[in-house]
Structures are given as structure tokens and as C-alpha cells.
Design a binder for these strands. Structure first.
Length: 219
DNA sequence: GCGACAG
DNA sequence: ATCTTGTCGC
């Protein structure tokens, strides 16, 4: 599939932040509610700066695997909180470009709108591909929230600077919540519905679990 | 064995 | 993010 190059690669923190500030204006917070093909993305780190990126495409209704791609790369930016996306983007884009099918939704391992400048990895991937995208974080990042109720499906808003930027969502009884935020071309209600639909069995969405497995054990 | 969770 | 050890439970 096609991935647009909307910016040069940043050579400083200030450049990276200004790219996020500019692309933030491209994010759309509404979109389709159903998705025929759902992709999960993840990156595994090895050694000093090697990364393996994996993209797995599943049938949106049966969750049967349709296609997967693995790409090797290098960490592309130093670790700076809020600029995490720049570490992984080149390897993820490389993997996406090698897909022969175009997914209808990207399920990203990380944050979207719930980010210091409102432009986390899920927003970045959504805008570069023009596809609906959502982010699922495993630990709280920004904003404040109450713990959601104990039953599967319970959620509470994540509020940052007076705005709702995501939801803490209980995907299974007796497990820690996940943190859902919009990436691109999706509403928060739809993002929440999709994450719940993709977590019938485990805490994390099936597409992310598949991608995580593949990135760790390429085969 | 795998998943969740602890330290 | 990674790695390692161990417990509990399905």
C-alpha cells in the first residue's frame, strides 16, 4: 500500500515537535464505523538500535489472518517522551508499504490524541496513510482518569487540559485497563467499540498480539 | 503452556 | 522498550 511522505526526517527535537504541531491539523475525528480489514502494528527492539516491525492484517469479521509483513530497521530517533513515534515510524512505514492489501483500520501499539501535543503514533500513522487509526496504550501517559469499573466494557474518560482525549477501558474482568485514543478518521465511540470487539479473549487487541508475536519471532 | 501480575 | 524469576490460574 501507499504511504505519503508529508515531512522530511527531523534532525532535532524542535523539528520533530514542529512536524507534530503541523500534522496535528490533518487529524480527523470522525469516520467509518465498520472495517473489513483490520491491521495490527508492533515493533520489537534488539541490541543497540535494531528494530523489527510487524504488520498483521486480519479479516475484520472473522479475525482470520489475511497477510503479514515483517521489516528490519534501525531505531530512527533518540528516545524523547512525546517523540516516541519517530523511533519506530521508518520501520513501520517500510512494512506497510510492502502490504499487497490495504487495511481499513490501523490498530497501533501506543497513543493517538492522548499525547502532549495531541499527535501520538496512531495519529501519525493515520495521517501518513490516510487510513482510520486508533491507539491502544498499556500504561497511562497523559491526563487524569478514574479507574473504570471491574467489568469488561467499563470505561472512564481521560481528560487533559479540560478536553477528553481518550478512555481507560477494561477489556477483561480482573485485568488492568488499556488506554484507547483516536488516531485518525475515527470517533472515540467507534475506537472503543473496535477495541472491545478485538479483545473477546485477552487484555490486548488480537491484531496487536499477532503483530507482537511476529515481531518477536519472525518466521 | 500461556496470560496476568509482582518486584 | 528489554531481560529475568517466580506464582497463580485456566
Amino acid at each position: 500500500m501507499q504511504v505519503r511522505r508529508l515531512h522530511p526526517w527531523p534532525s532535532s527535537v524542535a523539528e520533530a515537535e514542529s512536524i507534530q504541531d503541523r500534522l496535528r491539523g490533518h487529524v480527523e475525528l470522525t469516520g467509518p464505523t465498520g472495517f473489513a480489514l483490520v491491521a495490527g502494528l508492533d515493533v520489537h527492539y534488539h541490541g543497540d538500535d535494531a528494530v523489527t516491525a510487524a504488520v498483521v492484517v486480519l479479516d475484520g469479521s472473522t479475525l482470520a489472518p489475511v497477510e503479514h509483513v515483517v521489516a528490519e530497521g534501525r531505531v530512527a530517533f533518540p528516545y524523547v517522551p512525546g517523540l516516541f513515534a519517530f523511533r519506530e515510524l521508518p520501520a513501520l512505514i517500510d512494512a506497510l508499504q510492502r502490504l499487497t492489501v490495504t487495511p481499513d483500520l490501523l490498530v497501533c501499539d501506543g497513543y493517538g490524541l492522548a499525547h502532549p501535543r495531541g499527535f501520538g503514533l496512531a495519529c501519525h500513522l493515520g495521517v501518513l496513510t490516510a487510513l482510520p487509526a486508533l491507539g491502544v496504550g498499556k500504561t497511562p501517559f497523559i491526563g487524569t482518569h478514574e479507574p473504570p469499573g471491574p467489568e469488561r466494557g467499563a470505561w472512564t474518560p481521560i481528560v487533559h487540559e479540560g478536553a477528553t482525549v481518550g478512555r481507560a477501558l477494561r477489556t477483561q474482568r480482573g485485568v488492568k485497563p488499556v488506554y484507547v485514543s483516536q488516531g485518525h478518521r475515527i470517533s472515540l465511540d467507534t475506537a472503543t467499540d473496535q477495541v472491545l470487539r478485538l479483545t473477546a479473549r485477552f487484555r490486548l487487541p488480537e491484531p496487536i498480539r499477532h503483530a507482537d508475536h511476529l515481531a518477536r519471532h519472525p518466521s
